[in-house]
């Protein structure tokens, strides 16, 4: 069925409108796949993390959302409007931070921000200077004299300064030191709380885990999985250490559904569990468990497991 882009902002269960609606979007470059048949939506006030190795199509997807590239097929609507039909008006509500950052080296930070403001026909210098101060960025410095990380701060300021309703951030913390990364995370959190929607791509899985409500994992232009961070993690094995009063037989545990890698060392049984743990805990209590330590999978584990599986499948 052909995708259509004339759907105005819908409400989900929590009455949040769909801000970004990607339908069967495909982009090919001279026969090479940029993205292939990607469909996803992002709701108002949500942070969606895009994960994937280099060349997986994250940047292409963000550029398509901005209307900077033309689709091979499919469509994307932003705020309910087809981005290819109403790109100019839509872009006034978007802040974008590109992955391959290039600024005007001969300008000062203030001149550059002013230049962008004038092109946007906005005067948000107070907000821009407040952001500069927050990120410890001197607006009087020439951009050409700045380090890679400091230039990245300029890019962050220009993306956030006009308080856009949608932020598309392509590896936003690349080159930032840990202190500024922390400040950036607070900024994202505040921006989300004022109702803005954020799509960010990153290689820093821990950062995505902290910031994103949902994660979309891409590989070779295709969307492998998109899910709530907690839900995604729950689909992967959780490691449990069960401490007993005396030594315990691992066989009954190994036969439980969803339980694997059962090992016993002295009075401690370790195992991995996927899915509900009710039966396991019931058995452990019956056998006299005195302590339980759970180790949730990190997003790194999820990401690496996904790619491991997909490599084996290939």
């Amino acid at each position: 069925m052909p995708a259509t882009c004339n759907v105005k902002a819908e409400m989900n269960d929590s009455q949040r409108p769909i801000v970004v609606d990607v339908r069967r979007a495909t982009k090919r470059y001279n026969g090479n796949v940029g993205i292939d048949d990607v469909s996803l939506d992002v709701r108002g006030g949500e942070v969606l993390g895009l994960l994937g190795p280099n060349g997986s199509g994250k940047t292409t997807l963000l550029r398509l959302m901005l209307g900077m590239l033309k689709f091979t097929s499919g469509c994307i609507s932003i705020f309910g409007d087809d981005i290819t039909a109403n790109g100019r008006a839509t872009r006034s509500r978007i802040g974008y931070l590109p992955g391959d950052l290039a600024l005007y080296d001969q300008q000062t930070v203030r001149q550059y921000l002013q230049f962008l403001m004038r092109l946007r026909r906005l005067d948000v210098m107070t907000s821009a200077l407040a952001l500069c101060s927050r990120l410890k960025l001197d607006p009087s410095r020439r951009i050409g004299d700045l380090s890679r990380g400091t230039k990245q701060k300029v890019a962050v300021v220009q993306a956030f300064m006009h308080e856009p309703e949608l932020l598309l951030l392509d590896e936003p913390t690349s080159g930032l030191d840990p202190i500024v990364q922390r400040e950036f995370e607070l900024l994202v959190d505040e921006t989300r709380h004022r109702g803005a929607t954020i799509v960010l791509s990153s290689h820093v899985l821990a950062e995505v885990e902290r910031l994103a409500d949902r994660v979309a994992v891409m590989r070779e232009g295709r969307l492998m999985v998109i899910d709530d961070v907690l839900m995604l993690k729950s689909r992967f094995a959780r490691r449990l250490d069960l401490e007993f009063e005396s030594s315990v037989d691992p066989a009954p545990f190994a036969s439980l559904p969803g339980v694997r890698a059962v090992n016993v060392a002295r009075r401690t049984l370790t195992c991995e569990v996927v899915g509900p743990e009710t039966e396991l805990l019931r058995m452990a209590v019956a056998l006299g468990v005195i302590g339980i330590h759970a180790h949730d999978p990190s997003l790194d584990d999820v990401f690496l497991t996904l790619f491991d599986r997909s490599s084996h499948a290939a």
Binding site: L66, M68, R88, A89, R91, S92, I94, Y96, P98, D100, L101, A102, L103, Y104, L116, L119, R120, A155, Q158, L168
Partner: peptide
């Protein structure tokens, strides 16, 4: 140079 990336993200045709 790549400087057009941010320019083309602005509301200009």
């Amino acid at each position: 140079a790549g400087t057009a990336d941010i320019l083309f993200s602005l509301p200009i045709s």
